[in-house]
């Protein structure tokens, strides 16, 4: 990697800038990790027993794992040669602005809060926290309207799923009162 840095003079002076420029190599890293994971897992599958037919449960994972490594290398080559994946566009996506990591992290927080709380306080409460948290993260600051909408949506969804559609959701202590 260092040799490649040297080849690009203006980026080479500042290593952090180089990594920012080539952050797509992170995808290659993910592919390598996945590939190694699939391969090591495949190699530990015992093949001697329970096998029916000439091709056992190992073959496809070995193939997929190897291909993951090959594609990681090819993608890395593409990135180092200046190839860039096109970021996805959309109606509400403004690619001219830099990525807003605070919003993303707050959203992740709201999502994980729901996962952590759903078993403890039940869906009506954890879902409301998720909705309000996500709306807050995305820039909504109506301190009366937001929680009201969140609570209304959450309780309504719970009622519709749990009672009308027959898809059980955890009610938590709040619903036991009723």
């Amino acid at each position: 990697m260092t040799t490649d840095t040297a080849r690009e003079p203006e980026a080479g002076r500042e290593p952090r800038g180089w990594f920012r420029e080539h952050s797509e190599l992170g995808i290659c890293a993910v592919l390598v990790v996945l590939g190694l994971l699939v391969l090591t897992d495949a190699l530990r599958i015992p093949t001697d027993f329970a096998q029916r037919g000439p091709v056992g449960p190992k073959a496809v994972p070995v193939l997929v794992g190897s291909l993951l490594l090959v594609v990681a290398v090819l993608l890395a080559r593409d990135v180092l040669r200046g190839g860039r994946g096109e970021a996805e566009t959309g109606e509400d996506v403004d690619l001219s602005a830099p990525a807003d990591w605070r919003t993303v992290l707050l959203l992740c927080g709201a999502f994980l809060a729901n996962a952590a709380l759903i078993g403890v306080v039940g869906f009506p409460i954890s879902g409301a926290i998720l909705f309000w948290g996500a709306a807050y993260a995305l820039g909504s600051r109506a301190y009366v309207r937001d929680p009201l909408i969140a609570a209304g949506l959450s309780v309504l969804t719970f009622a519709v799923f749990n009672n009308l559609l027959g898809v059980p959701l955890p009610g938590g202590p709040l619903m036991e009162v009723f």
Partner: peptide, 22 residues
């Protein structure tokens, strides 16, 4: 309002994923 739209998407995604196997 976009905050409600995307908050709603995450909300229903969570309901959906949870409902598969509780």
């Amino acid at each position: 309002p976009r905050p409600y739209l995307y908050a709603g998407i995450l909300f229903f995604a969570s309901v959906g994923a949870y409902a598969v196997n509780a």
